[in-house]
Simulated assay, not measured.
Amino acid sequence: MKSTVADEMCTEDLGNVLPSVYKSVRLSVASPPLLHVNASLLLLTDEALSEVFGAVVEDSEEYQTLKVLRKGGITSILFSRPHHANVLDMKMVEELTTALHSARLDPTTRLTVTAATGRVYCGGHKPGLDAASGLQLRDGLHSLVKCVLEFPKPLAALVMGPCVGVLAGLLPLYDVVLAAKGACFQTTVVESGETPCGCCTYTYPRLMGHARAAHMLLLGHELECGEAQRSGLVTEVLPTTAFHHTALSTLHPLTATPPPALSHTKQLMRQPLLNPLTSVHGSAIMTNTTQVISMARYFAAGVKRNSDNAP
């Protein structure tokens, strides 16, 4: 079978594009099911996306890191940086927040889905290289988390492959999380100098208990999909073959439910948690502000030491 550019993207060494603090993620967990699948399963072309989601990719200059499709009451937002393991950078954070706001305001959208092209759902986020870019990213992530926290419509994640960092931390704020067999989950590694965000310091202990949450949040433990389902992080684990087709079929009943019933039910479920979640998120932002400045000073001092010691 002739190799295509898309197939080559499937098999590249993702260890070279993940941020160094996340390279402990066992990417091989995504294989054998994902290493040798064809490009259409990994949604690397617009044709594959249209076939799976039954809609045409929106031709919008607004999105360079995402693919957005709308049909039948479902807005699908796909992370589209497969050659960078879908690592969040500032642009992708901004575009994802914009796409979620658009889905929130769209009267035809009853369900919003996030998924990904390639064999990694998300490989973490790209840290700022100095205080200014670090603070900009912090503000962007703050807006993204707030958007997810206050999202009034059903929100579902279709996770294939590793899900690392901020987006793993956000999953408890979703209403449905469907994972392909072989998916794995890891939050921000604290040894990187950052406090996990996405309210996961509150939601993870509530879901899985303090000991298991501490194993993830403090020690960087990687949760495989079966363990994630038993912990309450994942709703259901589905076969890798035809994963997106099966997931969308599973979610389809939500599009036939009266929207007011969905939004009111979600509001009643979320309301008792809104104040503590908002408080935890605010505290994380304040903590990360201090950490961003401290890390920038640390790296700047390291650069100066290196230049002083240069021959």
Score class of each variant (00 low, 15 high):
E12P: 00
E12T: 08
E12V: 10
D13Y: 00
D13I: 06
G15Y: 15
V17Q: 04
V17N: 03
V17G: 03
V17F: 06
S20K: 11
S20V: 14
V21K: 05
V21H: 10
V21P: 02
V21A: 13
Y22R: 02
Y22P: 01
Y22N: 09
Y22A: 09
Y22S: 09
Y22G: 03
K23C: 08
K23F: 00
K23T: 15
S24M: 05
V25G: 00
V25I: 14
V25R: 03
V25E: 11
R26L: 11
R26I: 12
R26P: 01
L27M: 09
L27P: 01
S28L: 08
S28Y: 02
S28C: 08
S28K: 12
V29W: 01
A30M: 07
A30I: 01
S31G: 15
S31V: 05
S31A: 14
S31T: 13
P32C: 03
P32S: 09
P33E: 15
P33N: 13
L34R: 10
L34M: 11
L34F: 05
L35H: 10
L35M: 11
H36T: 12
H36P: 00
V37Y: 01
V37N: 05
N38F: 03
N38V: 07
N38H: 07
N38K: 14
A39F: 02
S40E: 15
S40I: 04
L41C: 02
L41D: 10
L41N: 03
L41W: 00
L42K: 13
L42F: 00
L43A: 08
L43E: 06
L43M: 14
L43G: 04
L44I: 07
L44E: 09
L44Y: 01
T45G: 06
D46R: 14
D46E: 15
E47I: 14
A48G: 12
A48L: 06
L49M: 15
L49K: 09
L49E: 10
S50F: 03
S50E: 15
S50T: 15
S50W: 02
E51Q: 13
E51Y: 00
E51L: 09
V52C: 09
V52D: 06
V52W: 00
F53M: 13
F53T: 10
F53S: 11
G54P: 11
G54V: 14
G54I: 10
A55H: 05
V56N: 06
V56A: 12
V56H: 10
V56G: 02
V56M: 07
V56F: 01
V57E: 03
E58I: 03
E61H: 05
E61V: 08
